[in-house]
């Protein structure tokens, strides 16, 4: 029905219009790179020219050396690995558990109403306050950190996924009822697939949350991981180490976000389908 028109069929005005859009997009990408390049250059230069004290504010060349040293000691991937492991486990368990609990609450309106105030309070509670309890219960190790990452993302996941479920119109469910659908069929054929976009959005949120949980957890207890490096670097005044860890953290967090975004794109193809 819809024929693909080639560029030759367009009028001059339309081609000019398309070119203007293209130019704008190129400009935006250039500016993005420019900002980071100028920032790094300025940082480096200010350290070289003595405008700032690299002992306090570090500098790109110094934190790169710091990363290289970590690599030589063989510690770089150990720290990255541990933090990444904790985050992924916390994130995946939080997502699966959160979605399961949301399904349960969707299934039973009564249960949902009974538990509503508890969810509200748990959501408002700063989960970090539970840190000391977690250490006592799970020990000063990886377990506590994972639970912290899990806790921080869990409640948000439950609430946003449930909100997604409840967004599905009653009329769509009514249609299913006219076909004689069971509640389980309504769940698997309509509610879950319709909520994929909401769930993916919730995941993008909770990826960030998991990182917060894990880094805070590492501040509190750990002997390794990027959070540990940051705290340790701060305590011994090795700002190069702190900056190096933060840069690595930035890259990892961005990568993980893009992994989720990639899955999102693949799972809701029908949305972008022309």
């Amino acid at each position: 029905m819809m024929k693909k028109t080639t560029i030759h069929d367009y009028s001059k005005e339309h081609i000019a219009y398309l070119n203007a859009i293209k130019r704008k997009n190129i400009f935006i990408s250039c500016m993005r790179y420019l900002i980071i390049i100028v920032f790094i250059l300025f940082w480096e230069l200010s350290a070289m020219l003595g405008w700032s004290d690299p002992f306090i504010s570090s500098s790109p060349s110094r934190f790169i050396v710091s990363i290289a040293n970590l690599y030589k000691e063989g510690a770089l991937f150990k720290h990255i690995g541990i933090t990444l492991f904790e985050t992924v486990v916390g994130f995946v368990v939080g997502t699966v558990l959160g979605t399961l609990i949301a399904i349960l609450l969707w299934w039973s309106n009564t249960l949902s109403r009974i538990l509503d105030p508890y969810l509200v309070v748990l959501n408002a509670l700063p989960k970090i306050a539970l840190g000391p309890i977690l250490i006592v219960w799970f020990g000063a190790g990886v377990e506590s950190i994972i639970v912290m990452g899990l806790l921080i993302s869990l409640i948000v996941t439950i609430m946003s996924v449930l909100a997604g479920f409840n967004e599905i119109t009653d009329e769509k469910q009514f249609l299913m009822k006219t076909l004689g659908a069971t509640k389980y069929q309504i769940l698997t054929m309509v509610v879950l697939p319709a909520s994929v976009p909401t769930i993916m959005n919730a995941l993008k949120l909770s990826v960030g949350m998991s990182w917060v949980g894990v880094i805070v957890g590492e501040y509190l207890v750990s002997k390794s991981g990027l959070g540990y490096l940051i705290v340790y670097g701060g305590q011994v005044f090795k700002l190069d180490l702190v900056m190096a860890s933060i840069v690595i953290l930035c890259i990892l967090a961005a990568l993980m976000y893009y992994v989720v975004a990639y899955f999102e794109k693949r799972m809701i193809k029908w949305r972008t389908h022309e």
Partner: peptide
């Protein structure tokens, strides 16, 4: 409203009623 399911093709939307039943 038609309430066709956005993530299903037309064919699969038509099959929905058969699947439910």
């Amino acid at each position: 409203r038609d309430h066709l399911l956005d993530w299903r093709t037309i064919e699969d939307n038509v099959f929905l009623s058969l699947q439910v039943k």
